[in-house]
Design a protein around this nucleic acid. Structure first.
Length: 662
RNA sequence: GCCUGGGUAGCUCAGCUGGUAGAGCAGCUCAUUCGUAAUGAGCAGGUCAGGGGUUCGAAUCCCCUCCCAGGCUCCA
């Protein structure tokens, strides 16, 4: 028997007998690898371990603790769940069950319109453990379309997938079927599932999973079609990886801004206001004011001009802008005033800024004209979509619109991107990537040339910024492409923050013009940009990023002063006035409670500095300082030194030009 | 908007199959005067989300509405 030569990921080659499977290759490399192997990536394609190899193949053995390995074991775990469900609910129909980030899901329709309850998750999980205990093999079988249709005759969703593939539709169902044949994986005589694969060799290779929740999900993601029962699970290569993931979820829950916001008395969502509408309490108001004031100072330094616009407007404004055509469903319904005149709450600020531009004739000498506003907007988000401060019905954008000439556009965008990233870094977010969203099919307005030019310009600017950029094809707004800045937070989650959008449409719709140096009327380009996105959401992200421990410059309360005994009150007040006089936010806790209890309260409220003063401090004009996150309290620090230290810390965060100018 | 689950004191929660509401923390009062994460006692606090129904009797069972959570859909 002749040998074939295979290429391994480390660049080496290996000869194995012709007809060898990926599994045999793994075993020939090492017993340990043979035992670990779950699947193989052959010439870039994931395959079963049993698949035969051919001369010249590039082969990577897939082991559990890898992205490929986790994907395969998650997908296989989804099949185990489907089998468990059919055992528990005979006649259950299943739709699709792919691997997703951190886990998997499977969509089901249960007999007699039954629904899963939370308790059912435990039953399903127990049944899955039995299936894993049985160590059933995953056996791949291939069929013609006709055979496939016959095999899955009692599974209407599978039939739809198969017929969709045959007619060339359903390209999105690659996890189920691909190519010219129908493949299925059989676990037992009675259970098989339509699937492209690959899968782990047998169910015994699985087991580090947990079912998380049940949810509704529309068949094929279409809200006009049947809603199925989706079960989500997480699955990992080892107990340690599973528990690390569960601990990550617990950590995210501990940082939840909705919980911390209440505990820290920052904001609330009174039910009397309605879903998605928040109020900021004094402490949250302080955080917000500090953030907004800092943003204003930066914008002043960057030559923005400040404008204001009303919250409601006649319908004609949004008819002209085109927003009523596209988003009327997502706007609050109009108020009928003045004999049938419809007024809308504004869902965005841009048309107002265009009107400001148009208020008089503009010269090219005024461009770029940068109009900034903390603009409150109202959007009628679907009731199921609102979430804390991150998805709301009323929010304030740090919104600006830049009017410039086409020749200024590139420089303006490049400077803007630098400005954005610098500002975000000042808030402690410094791990970014960019997303370039391009023309949305079927929704876009405007000429191809304009779109191409806009996309190319944004791509150039993104490249020049030297930050990782991913493309989001078709993700742009109807009037132009955009760059968005995605920031990773302290626990690795990404949040879409700033967006920079190019717009050739709105100036045209409103017939905005400037007079050029050639005395010609020209159409300006408009750049929409919001750096925080919404101020509310930005605060939520910061609270979660810092787990509530906001840096001193943003903290609602910077220092808490405690006297050891009542008779230190005079000195406590002296310390308070000194700190207050230096512009610091100070609170005195003179409750009649033991010092330890007051320390504890201040710690739990995440105050950056706790100052304790007693007899020795009164005598020497010193303070004891217990810093948040510090090891040991510092005793006998001169009051003046402490004040200077704090002032330095508070001022240090900003950019140099700002601390000089503002 | 749809699916699943939920709503009991300011917060976290208990209250079995219907018999008339409880704890801890927080709050208030009094006592305690204390050097770095919980001093003690007492008091007060509830239309059990709201409305309707079943019942001799509803926090508990049924219906409707509101709100919340997690998904789906959507996200200018």
């Amino acid at each position: 028997m002749s040998n074939i030569t295979l290429h391994l990921p480390d660049g080496s080659t290996r000869e194995v007998p012709d007809g060898s499977s990926a599994h045999q290759l793994a075993e020939s490399i090492g017993r340990r690898l043979g035992a670990d192997a779950l699947a193989a990536r052959v010439n870039g394609e994931l395959r079963d371990l049993t698949s035969p190899l051919h001369d010249g193949d590039q082969v990577t053995i897939v082991t559990p603790a890898s992205e490929d390995g986790r994907e395969v074991l998650r997908h296989s775990t989804a099949h185990v769940m489907a089998q468990a469900v059919t055992r528990l609910w005979p006649g259950a129909q299943f739709a699709i069950g792919p691997a997703i980030e951190d886990g998997f899901y499977y969509d089901f329709r249960l007999p007699d319109d039954a629904r899963f309850s939370d308790e059912d998750l435990e039953r399903i999980e127990a049944e899955m453990r039995r299936i894993i205990e049985e160590n059933q093999a995953f056996v791949r079988e291939e069929h013609s379309f006709e055979e496939g249709l016959a095999l899955f005759a009692d599974q209407p969703f599978k039939v739809e997938i198969i017929t969709g593939v045959r007619s060339g539709e359903g390209a999105g169902d690659e996890t189920e079927v691909s190519g010219s044949v129908v493949s299925s994986y059989r676990n037992t005589e009675s259970f098989r599932d339509l699937c492209r694969g690959p899968h782990v060799p047998s169910t015994g290779r699985l087991g580090h999973f947990k079912l998380m929740r049940v949810a509704g999900a529309y068949w094929r993601g279409d809200e006009h079609r049947e809603q199925l029962q989706r079960v989500y699970g997480t699955a990992w290569e080892s107990p340690a990886a599973l528990s690390a993931h569960l601990e990550f979820l617990a950590e995210a829950a501990r940082r939840d801004h909705r919980i911390l916001g209440r505990e820290m008395d920052l904001f609330s969502f009174p039910p009397e206001l309605g879903p998605g509408l928040s109020v900021f309490h004094p402490r949250g108001g302080t955080v917000r004011r500090v953030i907004e004031e800092y943003s204003r100072a930066r914008h002043v330094a960057a030559d923005y001009e400040f404008v204001y616009s009303p919250h409601i407007t006649k319908a004609v404004l949004f008819e002209t802008s085109g927003h009523l055509d596209w988003f009327s469903e997502d706007m609050y319904p109009p108020m009928e005033l003045d004999e049938g005149q419809a007024y809308y709450l504004k869902p965005m600020n841009c048309p107002f800024h265009v009107l400001i531009f148009k208020a008089r004739q503009r010269s090219f000498r005024e461009l770029p004209l940068r109009l900034f506003e903390f603009g409150s907007v109202y959007r009628y988000e679907k009731s199921g979509a609102v979430h804390g401060l991150t998805r709301v019905r009323g929010m304030t954008q740090d919104d600006a619109h830049i009017f410039c000439t086409r020749s200024q556009m590139r420089d303006e965008l490049a400077n803007l991107l630098t400005f954005v990233l610098d500002l975000l870094r000042d808030f402690g977010l410094d791990d970014f990537y960019l997303e370039l969203s391009t023309r949305p099919e079927g929704k876009a307005v405007g000429s191809d040339e304009d779109w191409n030019e806009a996309e190319a310009t944004l791509a150039d600017v993104a490249r020049a910024a030297g930050i990782e950029t991913v493309r989001d094809e078709g993700g742009g707004a109807f009037y132009g492409p955009k760059i968005s800045v995605q920031a990773r937070d302290a626990i690795g989650r990404t949040h879409q923050l700033s967006t920079i959008q190019l717009d050739f449409q709105l100036p045209a719709r409103f017939d905005a013009e400037y007079v050029s140096s050639q005395n010609q009327r020209e159409r300006p380009v408009m750049i929409h940009r919001a750096l925080f996105g919404s101020v509310e959401r930005f605060i939520a992200i910061l609270v979660e990023h810092y787990a509530g421990n906001l840096p001193t410059w943003m903290a609602p309360e910077q220092v808490r002063v405690l006297g050891v005994r009542d008779d230190h009150d005079d000195y406590v007040d002296q310390v308070r006035r000194r700190l207050r006089g230096a512009g610091l936010r100070v609170v005195v806790d003179d409750a009649h409670e033991p010092l330890g209890a007051r320390i504890r309260r201040a710690k739990m409220e995440k105050v950056p500095y706790i100052v304790v003063v007693g007899d020795e401090d009164v005598a020497h004009e010193t303070v004891g300082v217990n810093a948040r996150g510090g090891d040991e309290p510092e005793r006998g620090l001169a009051l003046g030194d402490f004040v200077n230290r704090l002032l330095e810390e508070v001022e240090r965060h900003g950019s140099p030009e700002l601390s000089r100018g503002a």
